[in-house]
Amino acid sequence: MIELKNVHKRFGHHVVLDGVDFTVADGETVALLGPSGTGKSVLLKHIIGLLRPDVGDVLVDGESVPGLKRRALTKLRTRIGYAFQTGALFDSMTVYENIRLGITDETCYGDRDFCRARVKECLRLVNLSEDVGRLMPAELSGGMRKRVGIARAIAGRPTYLLYDEPTSGLDPVNADAMDALIERFQKELHVTSVVVSHDVRGSFKIADRIALLHNGRIRAVGTAEEFMAAKDSVVRAFLERDLEVAAEG
């Protein structure tokens, strides 16, 4: 269970999160929507302790993340997989080594045969062939980079998966494939997921609940149906704009 309680975060004078309350139950997939630059990535980074709230608290499995000591934080991070927006692959290493670094259990990490099998498995899960392991990140397309990033995030068998804009920048076919991948992880790996996105249609398809981040707060949370029926002007404006864009495209 992930809980954000009244989280405030500012960078200098720039207030990004202004009292966010946000909960993700075990086994659930929540889509976090919002226009670019509203602080969706900032919110995700609070969950894994890459950023600390100025005010408020972040709880994962009942533990307060900002209060964790190094060792406990490291342990928590092995339970959370984070798929970065552009992959954030280590560009001095091969794809194989990248995914291997995702194997967070130290004894497993040192076991060559285990690693080989696990990396192959993770590549298969994201629909990439084993040969991709030999390539360097610079040789991959944007979509492949994202998928390798996801493979690295799941290599340590996390119970939580945080996706930062998994579909943005992809063509519609690849975006659909990515949504299918996320749905597959829900079913096969039983992970609890937060999917950051600004793609309304895709989010409706994969998420149990949807949350809209607006002006540093969660403006609305609910199922797809509840969202479509919402009267809130901001929600309506966001949905309509996206549907317009979809119609134009």
């Binding site: 890459l50 670094l101 967070t104 690295r152 340590g156």
Partner: peptide, 18 residues
């Protein structure tokens, strides 16, 4: 610097590595 701005440092930390 490149690792920092391309989030590779964050990625390393997110994997529980120092």
């Amino acid at each position: 610097g490149t690792m920092r701005v391309t989030e590779q440092v964050d990625a390393l930390e997110s994997l529980g590595r120092n």
